[in-house]
Structure formats: C-alpha cells, structure tokens
C-alpha cells in the first residue's frame, strides 16, 4: 500500500513531535505487506486521523505560544515603561519641590508682612495699603507657582498615558504646512524666517494628530533656540525604503556635544527655571517611536541644530496597526 506513506506524510514540525505516527506508519506498512491491503488501509486511516488531531493540537499550541510571546514582549514594554515612570517620579519630585520652595517662602513673607499691619491696625495707623500691596504681589506669585506645578504634572500625565497610534493615509506635507502656518505669525514677531523646502512625498500611513504634536514641538523648540532673528528650514523628503523624512533645522547656537545624548531624556532642559519642563523632546521621541520611526538630533558648531523625523511608509508595523485599530474601535 504505497499510498499510505503519502497520506501519512507529516506536514509540520509539531506533527513530528507525535510519537504515534511512525509506529502507525510502520504497522500500516507491515500490515500491507503481510495481511493484505485492508488492515493496512484501516491502520493508515487511523494514523491519518491521529496525525490530523495531533496537528490541530499543535496549531493550538503554536498559537498559544505566539500569544504568550506577545504577552511577554508586552510585559517587557510595560516593565520598561515602569522604569521610565520611576525616572519620571524622581524628576517630578525635583521639579515640584523647587516651586513649592518658593510657595513656602511667599507664605512666610505674607506672614511677616501681616505682623506690623496687625500691630498698626491695633494702633489705628494707616499701614494697610503697604500690606495690601505686598499681599497682592505675594498672592499673584503663589498663583503663578501653583500653575507651574500643574503644568509639570499635566505633562507628566501626558507622558505616562498609553498612546496607541490610530493610523490613516496622510498627506504629510500638508500636515507639516499646517503647523508651519500656525507658528509663522509668532516667528514673524521675533524676526525669524521660516523657509519651506517640501519635497515630493509618497503617501504614508501615520497618525496625523500625534505627528502634528511632534512637528509643532520641534518648531517651537527652534523658535526658542533662536530667540530673535535667524531662520528655520523645514524640509520634507522621500527617504530610502519608502520612508519619509521631516527635518526642522534652525540657525541658532546649536546643541553642545555633551548635551546631544541627553536631550531626549525626560526632564533634561537647558531653559531657564520655569521656562520648560524638559518633557517636550522626550514625549516627541516616544510618539515617533510609537509610529515606527525615529527622531534624531544633529548639531554642528555654529550651524544650529537639526531634528529629523523618519517615518516608515506604514505606521508602527503590523502589530501596532492592529493595536491602533482595536483602540479606535473602543473609542480610545
């Protein structure tokens, strides 16, 4: 019964794990050779059934293994996120304690200011005006510092939030132009010229609101680097492997070499106290990586700084798209 072997041919690596089929194959061949075709056929059919059943089980095991592996990488990402959050918590303690220090001082100064006024009021002396001025100034400062704290915590929450991209075919040049137009009025006010160098781009699949946030952040950073005057070059171009690149280059002082590897760290900032939280680039990089791309910085002495976003033709790869679609379905 030569066909028995063909029927029983193992078709997957997991089927080979079954210890039953070689035995049945052997028995089928033996039966065919010694007892005629019928017992061989029956044995062959039985072996086929066992194999079919084993491969079904194996496929299930394979699927479960794949799911477990997905769960493991999800756990790994989660643990990395937790580590990043720990880093954030430390940064937050630092950032919040400084404004809280000032709030404490303001309250102390108000208390001190209150003392002579209380005494003066007891004597009927008109010192209340001076006290009120100090009180108003102090209260104003308390409010400004409290706003500063909430700004930090809001950005921190934004960082900690799980952002799953919702990807769709996008016209990246249009998206970049929208953001350039948005900051151009402010740029004109500070005598900064924005030069557009948009290339022809293939249509890519990405998450427009997230990408807008990143482009806007890079444009704002460039404006802050320039303070007054200077130029910002916004370039878009098609890159290798169907990728696209968006570059924001400024003619500012550039980034010192010692800072280049730190600028994407949460809370790293060279801005004056209260002027930046140091989260903008950390959030931007996280978004771009989530979209399956990269965000890099370059700086040459006296040639300003350049930030380059590289995005793949398809956002975040197969898994990310499914993830995005699932989140979209739940109204995320």
């Amino acid at each position: 019964m030569p066909d028995g072997g063909g029927l029983l041919g193992p078709s997957g690596p997991l089927a080979a794990r079954s210890p039953v089929w070689p035995l049945l194959l052997g028995l089928a061949a033996l039966a065919a050779a010694t007892a005629g075709p019928w017992p061989g056929l029956i044995l062959a059919l039985a072996a086929g059934f066992v194999l079919w059943w084993a491969s079904r089980r194996s496929a299930g095991a394979l699927r479960r293994a794949r799911e477990e592996s997905c769960e493991l990488s999800e756990q790994l990402i989660q643990s990395q996120k937790m580590a990043a959050l720990g880093e954030l918590a430390a940064g937050i303690a630092h950032e919040i304690n400084n404004p809280l220090g000032i709030i404490t001082q303001e309250a102390e100064l108000l208390g001190l200011a209150l003392e002579p006024v209380e005494a003066a009021q007891r004597d009927g002396s008109p010192l209340a005006a001076a006290f009120l001025a100090e009180l108003r100034d102090g209260i104003g400062e308390i409010m400004r510092q409290v706003n500063r704290c909430s700004d930090i915590t809001h950005k921190m929450l934004n960082f900690a939030r799980k952002v799953a991209p919702v990807c769709q075919p996008s016209d990246v040049n249009r998206l970049v132009e929208d953001m350039v137009a948005l900051v151009e009025r402010e740029a004109t006010k500070q005598d900064t010229r924005i030069v557009r160098m948009y290339g022809e781009l293939p249509r890519v699949t990405t998450d427009p609101p997230l990408l807008r946030q990143v482009v806007l952040n890079l444009l704002n950073n460039a404006m802050q680097a320039l303070e007054r005057g200077g130029m910002i070059f916004v370039t878009t171009r098609a890159a290798e492997d169907g990728q696209i690149a968006i570059e924001v280059r400024d003619t500012g002082p550039g980034i010192p070499a010692a800072h280049l590897d730190k600028i994407f760290n949460p809370f790293f900032t060279t801005k004056a106290p209260g002027m930046g939280t140091g989260l903008g680039l950390a959030i931007s990089q996280r978004i771009v990586v989530g979209l399956g791309g990269t965000l890099t910085a370059q700086s040459l002495p006296d040639a300003g700084a350049a930030f380059v976003i590289r995005l793949p033709a398809t956002c975040g790869g197969e898994g990310e798209r499914r993830h995005g679609a699932a989140d979209q379905g739940t109204g995320h």
Binding site: I102, Q105, L109, E141, P273
Partner: peptide
Amino acid sequence: DDEERFRGNLVKL
C-alpha cells in the same frame, strides 16, 4: 541659587 525669586525671597527672609 539660579532661581531669582527663590534667591530674592530667601535674602528678604
């Protein structure tokens, strides 16, 4: 201290 308000307040206090 680089924070002007903090520095000024502490000098005052």
